[in-house]
Amino acid sequence: MEKIEVMQDVLSANEYIAQENRKHFKKKGALVINIMSSPGSGKTSLIIETIKRLKDWKIVVIEGDVEGDVDAKKIEETGIPAIQINTSGACHLDARMIHKALQKMNDEKVDLVLIENVGNLICPTSYNLGEDYKVVILSLPEGEDKPLKYPRIFQVADLLVLNKIDMEGPADFNFKNFNKIINKVNPKLEMAPVSCKSGKGMDKWIDWIKGVHAKDQD
């Protein structure tokens, strides 16, 4: 038997396409945010509430789902175009899927692209899409110990949106314990506690988007 050296990165193709996507998005002038969370923590709700609060912005949503277009339809009811990606079983979006979605966008300038990743706390951490920022949502009913069980996603994220703060009581969410856990997992992680339902805290999230958008334009 003969041994042949290969030394080739398995994820390098994804990384290369992600860089290409980044260039395309930059040409469009778009700030791109990859929103990740477990299923049911409020990704679609956060996107809809964001659209309502950024009425003057030109926004495009890329919806990643294993099957169907339920969420894309909800987004389009707001009047914003949504590009649906079905991953046909895969538990995450990858750069190639975003590249295809990009081809469906016209040449117009865009202020903001919101990518809703597939509901999953593990797989999306391994795939860059060409985004500027990664945001992870944790909703209170999921429990404060999630970052201990899935630390990686809380480490790669630039911002943690803590959703469903209106459910603090019934969810039995221990903030003191949560802060200790986050300090251990990623002490530098910025946080925005919100309730998509009541609107509480949404200003901070919107300010964060405006802040990173302004920084991006520099």
Binding site: M1, E2, K3, I4, E5, V6, M7, Q8, D9, V10, L11
Partner: peptide, 14 residues
């Protein structure tokens, strides 16, 4: 890390 370091191919010697 996640890469293919090498492969071993049949060169007909064994």
């Amino acid at each position: 890390e996640f890469f293919i370091e090498s492969i071993e191919v049949n060169d007909g010697k064994d």
